[in-house]
Design a protein around this nucleic acid. Sequence first.
RNA 1: GCUGCUGUAGCUCAGUGGUAGAGCACUUCAUUGGUAAUGAAGAGGUCGCGGGUUCAAAUCCCGCCAGCAGCUCCA
Length: 677
Amino acid sequence: MAVGLPGALPQNPKFLSPRSRVPFPLRGSQILWVFRGATTAVILCALYCSETNGRGFFRAHLGAREPRVGLLPVRDLLHPENSINKMSKTAPAPQVDELFPLSTLRHSVAHLMASAVGNLYPGVKYGFGPSIEHGFYYDFDFPEGTAPIEKKDLKRIEKEMRRLAKKTPEMTVEKLSRDEACARLAGADQDLKVEAVELIPEGEEITFWSHGDWYDLCEGPHMDRLDHDFAFKLQTIAGAYWRGDENNRMLQRIYGTAFWTKEELDAHMAWLEEVKKRDHRRIGTEMDLFSNHAEAGSGFVFWHPNLANVRLEIERFWWDEHTKRGYDPVYTPHVSKEELFAVSGHLENYEDMMYAPMTIDEQPYRAKPMNCPGHILIYQNRGRSYRELPLRWAELGTVYRYERSGVLHGMLRVRGFTQDDAHVFCTPDQLEKEIASVLELIDFMLKTFGFEYTAYLATRPADKTIGDDAVWEQATEALAAAAKRLDMPLEMDEGGGAFYGPKIDFKVRDAIGREWQNSTVQCDFNLPNRFDLTYTGEDGQPHRPILVHRAVLGSLERFVGGLIEHFAGRFPVWLAPTQVALIPIQEEHESYCNELSDLLRAEGFRVTNKDASSHMNKRIKEAQKAQVPYMLIAGEREAADRTVALRRRGTREQDVVSFEDFAKMLRSKRASRALEI
RNA sequence: GCUGCUGUAGCUCAGUGGUAGAGCACUUCAUUGGUAAUGAAGAGGUCGCGGGUUCAAAUCCCGCCAGCAGCUCCA
């Protein structure tokens, strides 16, 4: 029925040869492909026919959830701007940004870039060139002997792109047989593309998109022309393995981005600036937070006093919340005999990530890459009864992992880090309740830091897993039920579980929209078996406990590094390295300031050092650079009536308030862990 | 680990074969100042480390170390 419609075909482009179709916008981002030359009236007619005859078809292809979508008024199916009346007379040409999604623009600009590179570097071979989250890239294999392209070459390529977009704007598509495609690409010496053809499953259509004499194996879709209004920019050059496999040859990848308007492009560039400004490594240097040292080795973080204060505050919070929920602390050694990791299976599966053994008394020892074996040894130390389960043991456990040098990154990817680890040993019956308690804790802690999150339920992977179906099912069920109990929505990550059990992972969204993964709850059927963990049940028989691994923050390093970027160094009062800066206007007011700072310090507040003999302006400058939430400036008037001139971070205004009122406010901000100052 | 790039004062950076510079920060002195750049002077560097080429190396070459952007991997 669809093919029989006079003028319109829904979305699936395969029903129309690409050459003879043009896109027509529907509501949202839907596109209706119609015959080239179809008038609005014909399209409306087609939609009308579909309403009466082809509801099911439109339902399917418009992706509408509502079963009665086919009966919606036609105008609702069209772009909101295009009412029927307007359209039936002088069909206004849809704007190009309504015709094509941003990803199509970017994909087309990637083609444009590839053709420009082809012109400037004859003999270049093409890899893949898709659109990605914030732009696009294209992979190139430059001929032997070509000087590697540099950042300054990007300008030249951009210029050539502009020229080509004007000279040969039309984008066309043709369908080739598999043999034709291979022959053409092989003839052009495009061996990567020949390989790409071979990747296309039998039965799928093979299409080439061209503009000018440049063509590319590509399934599309693309814009109809390259001379629409849009703005683009080439950004960086990097190496990338062919097909993402490090055993393959390394190609040169050029990244770029494109938007419909210059304003949007500028806004995106401004966002990238903001990302740069928030870089925790930069802020870390500016605010004297942490350092790395070549002489200590890559991937080890040195926490300076400022950041150590932030961490200590987080640790206090963490322990308090764990104690409230029935966790007990444990401490385990950083180094132990290799044998322990043989039993746990880490040596077998994880050795590449572990530091090399050190020999002590002729025995091999290892730095621990995980905390679980240590906790398990404590469990095993004596017999366990069902009466004492669940056992919840928490440790801020420092682990060491050999990460490849190229992946190290500030505090976010390091070789020695402290996990906020805990293990719950429980019976199968207790599982759901225990998980619910963990989920509640994660929810509470993440929200305290001002993070929104999404939780993903990761189920059994397709292969290489251990454990019975029934156990997997029960545990997965427990995870889902626990989330339901808390009304926590779960996204599905089918097959994303660990080999040893299902889990729930959390992705948090930071202040500028980036996602981070930290928190996790994982069921483990593996380690209890390997260590032959048991407890004595009510029946007097040994039973196998379930082990739950969980981390709320992930690692202190990564979490705090992310926190620096999330807050852009402007920590809330409870976390701020220095919470209050006391600034006398003249030296003779120093004693009044010292008196106040003693009072605050006695309550555990972090206050600037007293007697920092320097001038008011300088102290203000320093306090601003240190992102101190509150400055208290005091001169003669303030000292006389026991007030302070309160200046809040980020503003130049000041209020004169009584010291007592300020202290009260400060206490309440700290106690409530308020995000706003 | 791989590809490309980088390493000069605490920080940001200039200096491409002839024996090291700026701004900010730091120190001292002067300035006694009502909300972030007062003035003057001073101090600070075996130019990442090691080797090579050269009459001469921060500069050219090689190796190592460390960092940056990606790729792959990950808390």
